[in-house]
């Protein structure tokens, strides 16, 4: 990707995004809704052509060599793409035909893929009769049937319970290790992002950071101290004045990044006795990284259709 931009009418969805993924890695794109990651996904999956900038997949240009690109990628959409009136095996057979596979070779692959996603016994069930997790696995089998070198997944954990989510990440890692398949996935779940080998953080159409999850967390260093008081903004001002730190008021708490969180807490408690309702010291999480990078709480970043934070609380 180099200088990729895209706009829907007036709204700029992607603003000069550049990056490259290494073969075999699991590359995550983290960002809230409206950050442009879905637009980026649509461009990569050849659903829409790039407007500005260049994009190549394994050296094939996304504008000029569409067929080569399409053959090299497997796509798992966020929205289901199975034909509910067909069985799992029929869905896969149809998919195989679209990619020019047929005959005994295709039958063998269908069997193989269904076994790999653990659905051999459900091969002849209509997909409308399957559970969300099972359907998701058929989708994955569908995306992998033609043995793509790059697997694109848009919010792959949508509708999956935590167990199925772990299985999925495990499977992607196995694919990378055994077959050298590169995975590129978009996500808004921190714990999923945590599992990626590298992570691009997106906000408002821009790629604001790109590194391994560990390196991203190391940028903050030390600890994150979260303090709750009755009057957060006033207290933050006092903190800044007295202790010379850079506090940020996020939602109903004050966040301070400190090399040594523990001694900082001691200083705060000493300086402001009785004013603190609660205080917590933690190692930085990816969410802290996000706040650090953008100055916003993760869920605030959404321009439209904000995901309720309740979704976060589920796990």
């Amino acid at each position: 990707m180099d200088g990729l931009s895209f706009r829907y009418g007036e709204r700029v969805a992607l603003d000069g995004v550049s990056f490259s993924a290494e073969p075999g890695e699991i590359f995550g794109l983290l960002g809230p809704n409206g950050s442009g990651k879905t637009t980026l996904f649509r461009i990569l999956s050849t659903l829409i052509p790039p407007q500005q900038g260049t994009a190549r997949i394994f050296g094939h240009d996304l504008r000029a060599e569409l067929n080569e690109v399409r053959r090299a990628i497997g796509v798992v959409f966020q929205a289901p793409s199975l034909d509910k009136k067909l069985t799992a095996a029929e869905n896969l057979r149809h998919q195989g035909h679209l990619y020019g596979l047929g005959g005994a070779e295709l039958s063998k692959r269908i069997e193989e893929m269904l076994a790999r996603v653990g659905l051999s016994d459900r091969a002849h069930d209509y997909t409308e009769k399957m559970s969300g997790g099972q359907r998701r696995r058929v989708e994955l089998a569908k995306g992998l049937l033609h043995r793509p070198k790059l697997l694109l997944l848009d919010e792959p954990s949508t509708g999956l319970d935590p167990g199925a989510r772990r299985d999925l990440m495990q499977y992607l890692k196995e694919l990378s290790r055994k077959d050298g398949v590169t995975s590129l996935l978009t996500t808004h779940l921190m714990e999923e992002a945590e599992q990626c080998s590298r992570l691009g953080v997106m906000r408002a159409g821009k790629l604001v950071a790109l590194d391994t999850p560990e390196a991203l967390k190391a940028r903050i260093g030390g600890h994150v101290v979260t303090i709750k008081t009755r009057e957060n903004s006033a207290f933050a001002a006092k903190l800044k004045e007295k202790l010379g730190v850079e506090p940020a008021v996020v939602d109903d708490a004050i966040r301070v990044e400190q090399e040594d969180g523990h001694s900082f807490v001691a200083r705060v408690v000493e300086a402001f006795p009785g004013e603190i309702e609660s205080v917590a010291v933690s190692k930085p999480t990816l969410e802290d990284v996000f706040v650090h990078l953008t100055g916003h709480r993760f869920w605030e970043g959404a321009e439209r259709g904000t995901e309720p934070p309740a979704k976060q609380g589920k796990h």
Binding site: L47, S81, L82, D83, Q95, L98, Y99, G100, K142
Partner: peptide, 16 residues
């Protein structure tokens, strides 16, 4: 229906 149910998108990105 195919578009609404999402089936069409996988055909659109296939090398056909």
């Amino acid at each position: 229906e195919d578009r609404r149910e999402g089936f069409l998108q996988s055909v659109l990105v296939a090398p056909v």
